[in-house]
């Protein structure tokens, strides 16, 4: 069953086409890698999918219901959760409260939210810092916390924007295990990453963007061996 269907989505900033006629479908339970050189439009696409930017053209269907006009909070209630490339947490609230915000906002009662928060904290190995304000966490711990926020109420689709960037290998391991475990239980993901070994390991399927457009959408092996992808990355490095 197609969970998310993106049809001809385009976004322009002035003369620049950040997302150029992008189309793809994602079936429930898939874990799709979204790759592409810097500035290829990955974050912009996630912004559109999560309601933070509006597409200039195209259509987005979530379980066959159009949703390109919805606000981020409405999308959150419909099960679209996203992690930001530049980590966003509530810096002056402690780790548990950060999790409670998402839980309560999405309709859990206090007791249930607290139970889930504690479970996530131990799963993400944040026990030692649970009492700290989020602003006092390390960069990697903040990412883990943001993971937790996205999964207080398991979303229908999780959009992860470079969760592994600048994260210590140990934490990367925790995140990888977290993603794998959820995926095994049927969680749907789009995972943006520059870390090719991780993409190869986690994602059966990958989409590569360049200059706003989809270059190829196939199995990860095929994508990484595709001449256009190599060209895009080399071109990206040369520029």
């Amino acid at each position: 069953m197609t969970l998310l269907s993106v049809n001809g989505v385009t976004k322009r900033y002035g003369g620049l086409t950040a997302v150029d006629d992008v189309s793809f479908d994602i079936v429930a339970g898939e874990l799709v890698g979204l790759i592409g050189p810097n500035g290829s439009g990955k974050t912009t696409l996630l912004n559109i999918l999560s309601g933070l930017a509006t597409a200039d053209a195209g259509e987005i269907l979530l379980a066959d219901i159009p949703c390109q006009r919805l606000t981020p909070e409405q999308l959150a209630h419909r099960g679209v959760m996203r992690m930001f490339q530049l980590t966003r947490v509530f810096r002056r609230m402690n780790v548990i409260d950060n999790l409670l915000v998402a839980g309560r906002a999405l309709g859990l009662d206090h007791g249930e939210a607290l139970t889930r928060a504690h479970a996530l904290i131990s799963e993400l190995r944040l026990d030692a810092v649970a009492a700290l304000d989020a602003g006092q966490l390390s960069g990697g711990q903040m990412k883990l916390l943001e993971f937790g926020v996205c999964f207080m109420v398991p979303p229908r689709i999780a959009l992860l924007d470079e969760p592994f960037a600048a994260v210590h290998p140990t934490m990367k391991e925790i995140m990888g295990a977290f993603i794998r475990a959820r995926h095994a239980k049927g969680q749907t993901f789009i995972l943006v990453s520059h870390d090719m070994p991780v993409v190869v390991e986690l994602c059966p399927r990958a989409i590569c963007m360049n200059a706003g457009a989809v270059v190829i959408d196939a199995t990860t092996r095929e994508v990484l061996n595709d001449a256009r992808v190599i060209e895009a990355y080399l071109g990206g490095h040369a520029a």
Partner: peptide, 24 residues
């Protein structure tokens, strides 16, 4: 109540609050 959580979440980061589903 949950309002206390939501108000402080908005204070700290409005975008993150919206992402978490808070009706900002």
């Amino acid at each position: 109540s949950k309002a206390g959580l939501f108000l402080q979440a908005i204070r700290d980061d409005e975008v993150a609050a919206r992402r978490a589903g808070v009706d900002v």
